[in-house]
Simulated assay, not measured.
Amino acid sequence: MSVSYRQWTETAATSGRHTLQAALLACTFGCAAGNLQVSPIVLEFSENQQANVLWLENDGDRPVHAQIRVLQWSQAAATDVLQPSAALRASPAIVQVPAGQRQLVRIIRPTPLSAVDANEQAYRVWVDELPEVDERRPPGLQFLLRYSIPVFVLPKDALPRDQVRKGPVDTSRLLASWQITADVLTLDVRNNGKQRVRLSELGWRTDNGAITKLHPGLLGYVLAGQHMQWRLPLAAELPHPGGLQARLNDAPTAQPLPTAGH
């Protein structure tokens, strides 16, 4: 039996827990899909917090096995980089979730944040569904899930996400630049702040207030002290003059992306 992983991240999440619906209905030949769900979709460690909790839930009628790993997350050459890390550990690292039940997994931080780490530290927790071993199952393709959960170790005196006022985000440490060709928008965003910035609902706003939606939902993160780039296809030429706007973190509305000239 061959195995294929489908990655499920916060990009595809629309509620407090991951769900998988039609994404696995495309199989037409001997395909098996898991029933694993993971919550929450983001983890944060406050300054002195030693552990956090993930819940793995199995809403199917068979046991599900999963492996949990922690990777350090950085951004280099305008792309995400993931590397093995011992700064956070999963306990247990391999679990069996019985049918119709859920399993608690602790994400443990063995040592406190170093005094030299002035910026927020970023990680990803991978939850990989493991292939089912069943000699009675006919050969075919088995689709498995990989959940990728963002984890942030907050810098000193930073507030957790659920305690931050849901107002406009301070963009004084954020700098964006973009290039537009006939059919592609290339967006670069540099974050000189101490915490990540999450961009969603990217749009183009003309000077008269008309808005062209470019990327609904989550676009991605720019981590603390780093920069990120996205290339987005354009369905039509953008009207000028205008500029880019996006919803930043949990701000209630979109904000203009600051450029060198603003």
Rank of each mutant, 00 (worst) to 15 (best):
W8E: 01
T11P: 02
S15A: 15
H18V: 01
T19Q: 12
V38A: 01
I41E: 08
E44C: 07
Q49N: 03
V64I: 15
A66W: 01
I68A: 01
V70W: 00
L71Y: 13
W73P: 01
S74Q: 12
Q75M: 13
A77Y: 10
A78D: 12
D80T: 08
L82R: 12
L82K: 07
Q83W: 05
P84W: 00
P84Y: 01
R89D: 01
A90V: 04
P92E: 04
Q96K: 09
V97P: 00
I107C: 03
E132F: 09
G140N: 06
L141S: 11
L144D: 00
L145G: 05
P155I: 00
K156D: 06
D157V: 04
A158P: 04
L159M: 09
L159E: 10
R161E: 11
Q163L: 12
R165V: 10
G167P: 00
V169C: 07
L174W: 10
L175H: 11
A176V: 08
I180W: 02
D183T: 14
L187K: 04
D188E: 14
Q195L: 06
Q195N: 05
V197Y: 15
L199G: 03
T206I: 09
G217H: 02
Y221S: 04
H227V: 03
W230I: 03
W230H: 08
E237I: 11
P239V: 05
P239W: 04
P239G: 03
A246I: 07
R247M: 05
D250K: 07
A251E: 08
P252F: 02
Q255F: 06
Q255D: 11
T259P: 06
